[in-house]
Design a protein around this nucleic acid. Structure first.
Length: 421
RNA sequence: GGAACGGUGUCCGAGUGGUUGAAGGAGCACGCCUGGAAAGCGUGUAUAGGUGCAAGCUUAUCGAGGGUUCGAAUCCCUCCCGUUCCGCCA
């Protein structure tokens, strides 16, 4: 959400953002409703002021004057009540439109339509060269009896997954490694639930718009979040934090649920795209200072890269274009790890800077040095997401004999083993 | 699922249908005091709108929404949330 005053004063900039982000929103309609609301509100407030003054006069009035004042109060009350439906309708309409207004991309964000317009910034690590015919991750899992896709599909349908034996331990080891890695860098480890109230999804910016991606709990006003960003962002909702409490830096582990509506047929095989997975999410709430926030952006990116480096996976960093970055984001980089079987990079991390757009929706404020409350800035990035990361992990580290090499940094989390399988 | 009790400002906590935006305390800010600090004393300190160059004026907000009333934090109804006890349960 943007500040309404900002929208009024910079409608051109906002319209540009709507255009480059390809959002279907008529800003002129918003501005019109805003003006109308203002007029109705001023009328109501004038009447309310009259009513209040009148009510205040009643106890002081003489016996003879009282009936007249009371009558006047009644009339004013009815006049106000008559205006309330219009007031309410305008407020609701404005809010609905306001929730759809995107954040402004930072200068320099490449303009584009979808992920094909994203810009590769750099490649890191060395691509593996195999002197044997490498297998894809599904074949590797099968070969070791590490998965049982058929049985789990009977239980849970498509896009479910099951890991067995050392693969199950590996998944756990990677999560623990990532939590530890981030904890060592000052992030507070957090383990939290994905079960959230709908307003938390509005707060992050997933709603309105992303409703069809989210599982809803039948008979309850609860939903399953697709990332720990959702519960964690709302942790301090409505509060005014002391500046000394910032920055809040979290490494939040949670289950993540995504319906994957609209991606039917895509990545149905293997561990790339599943309905339920687990993820360590980096989340930062910092002061409303763009320079400081951008430093955190670099830190979040460096953490993710550090984790991939420790896992010895080649990857590239991509800057998302305006059309691929989501309404709330001012800056977004994806990290994509190399998948040998496909001979391409696939997204494993997504780093985002939201400015105060998300905090404004969440009511996430702090008291600045001047004593005035202001909206914080928020950022998030994946720490690690399983089982997706196992795809590049298994494929890049496979050996001629089928074993999987365990990078040194991970061995301590896996009983000291240098290989599994 | 049953029962009881609660939801007030940055925090804790009082609160009578009208002079309460809301006592008191904590915290914070500034000042005095001090060699410096603590303590102590004094002053200040809600949020979001509208309007105004400004001082200011004004509206809303005491979980949410309705209702009663000239007037509601205060009375009534509905809902939401929380805590505790009992039951059930991994």
């Amino acid at each position: 959400m943007l500040d309404l005053k900002f929208i009024r004063d910079h409608s051109g900039l906002v319209k540009d953002a709507i255009r480059v982000k390809h959002i279907n929103l008529d800003l002129d309609e918003l501005l019109r409703i805003d003006r109308e609301l203002l007029a109705v509100r001023q009328r109501v407030e004038t009447l309310q002021a009259e009513r209040n003054a009148n009510a205040k006069a009643v106890p002081k009035a003489s016996k003879e004057e009282k009936p007249e004042l009371i009558e006047k109060g009644k009339a004013l009350g009815e006049e106000i009540k008559a205006l309330e439906p219009a007031l309410r309708a305008h407020e609701d309409a404005l809010r609905q439109l306001l929730l759809r207004v995107p954040n402004l991309p930072l200068p320099g964000v490449p303009e584009g339509v979808d992920d094909s317009d994203n810009v590769e910034l750099r490649r890191e690590g060395t691509l593996p060269s195999f002197d044997f015919t490498p297998l894809d991750h599904v074949a590797l899992l099968d070969q070791h009896g590490w998965a049982d896709a058929e049985r789990v599909a009977r239980v849970s349908g498509s896009r479910s997954y099951l890991l067995k034996g050392e693969a199950a331990l590996l998944e756990q080891a990677i999560l623990t490694f990532a939590m530890t890695y981030l904890a060592d860098r000052g992030f507070t480890p957090l383990s939290t639930t994905a079960l959230v109230r709908p307003e938390t999804l509005v707060a992050t910016g997933h709603f309105p718009g992303g409703e069809d991606q989210v599982y809803k709990i039948e008979g309850e006003d609860l939903m399953l979040a697709g990332t720990a960003e959702v519960p964690v962002n709302s942790l301090y909702a409505g509060e005014i934090l002391a500046e000394s409490e910032l920055p809040v830096t979290l490494a939040a582990l949670s289950a993540a649920f995504r319906s994957e509506a609209g991606s039917a047929g895509r990545d149905v095989r293997g561990l790339i795209r599943v309905h339920e997975f687990r993820k360590v999410e980096q989340y930062v709430i910092c002061r409303a200072d763009q320079a400081e926030a951008l430093k955190w952006f670099e830190t979040l990116l460096a953490n993710a890269e550090g984790i991939l480096r420790a896992l010895e996976l080649p990857y590239r960093v991509v800057q998302n274009c305006t059309g691929d970055m989501g309404a709330g984001k001012a800056l977004m980089y994806d990290i994509e790890a190399w998948v040998p079987s496909e001979q391409l990079y696939r997204e494993t991390h997504s780093c985002s800077y939201l400015g105060d757009w998300q905090a404004r929706r969440t009511g996430l404020r702090y008291r600045g040095e001047d004593g005035k409350p202001q909206f914080a800035h928020t950022l998030n990035n994946t720490g690690i997401a399983v089982p997706r990361i196992l795809v590049p992990f298994l494929e890049n580290h496979q050996q001629a004999d089928g074993r999987i090499r365990i990078p040194a940094a991970l061995q301590g989390f896996l009983g000291g083993k240098a290989f599994i399988g």
